[in-house]
């Protein structure tokens, strides 16, 4: 047995030592990456989509409005256990239909849901105000 073979980890034979060394490096990279992804994906998503300016329920509502292209959609929470799927039968979602459907909703940028919501609330408040002033 050569000196280098003595230093090999159990299970690794000399002809495969180099392969195992590279596999170990690859496994370490993947494990670290999955650990970081597992740790930071949900917090990262929360930040991108507007938390804490938006609560989870508000974020859910905003995502529904984008998904179904319908500003009147609100996230029902808690959702009734035996109710049909929340989107069942909806007619508002916009798609370009062909061999494959292509969604028409727009890409959501960093914290853009907060901006979209603020603008909608401002629009609704202005509309309410003008309606009130017209009625007087």
């Amino acid at each position: 047995m050569s000196i280098s073979a003595k230093r090999l980890p159990p299970g690794t034979t000399e002809p495969n030592a180099r392969l195992h060394r590279w596999l170990q490096r690859g496994l370490f990279v993947c494990l670290t990456a999955l650990a970081l992804e597992g740790t930071f994906t949900f917090p990262g998503l929360l930040v991108w989509y507007g938390f804490p300016d938006l609560s989870l329920v508000e974020m859910c509502s905003e995502l529904e409005k984008v998904r179904y292209s319908d500003d009147s959609r609100e996230c029902v929470f808690p959702y009734p256990f035996f109710a049909p799927s929340e989107g069942a039968g909806q007619k508002t979602a916009q798609d370009r239909w062909g061999v494959q459907p292509q969604p028409r909703y727009k890409r959501i940028g960093f914290r853009e849901l907060v901006k979209i919501r603020d603008e909608r609330l401002a629009r609704q408040a202005a509309a309410k105000l003008s309606a009130a002033s017209e009625s007087h």
Binding site: L45, W48, C60, L63, F77, Y79, E86
Partner: peptide, 17 residues
Amino acid sequence: AHHSLVSRTLVTAWGNM
């Protein structure tokens, strides 16, 4: 658990991303 709040916010947010 597709109608839980976690799914409807974080799973769909992941999908959107």
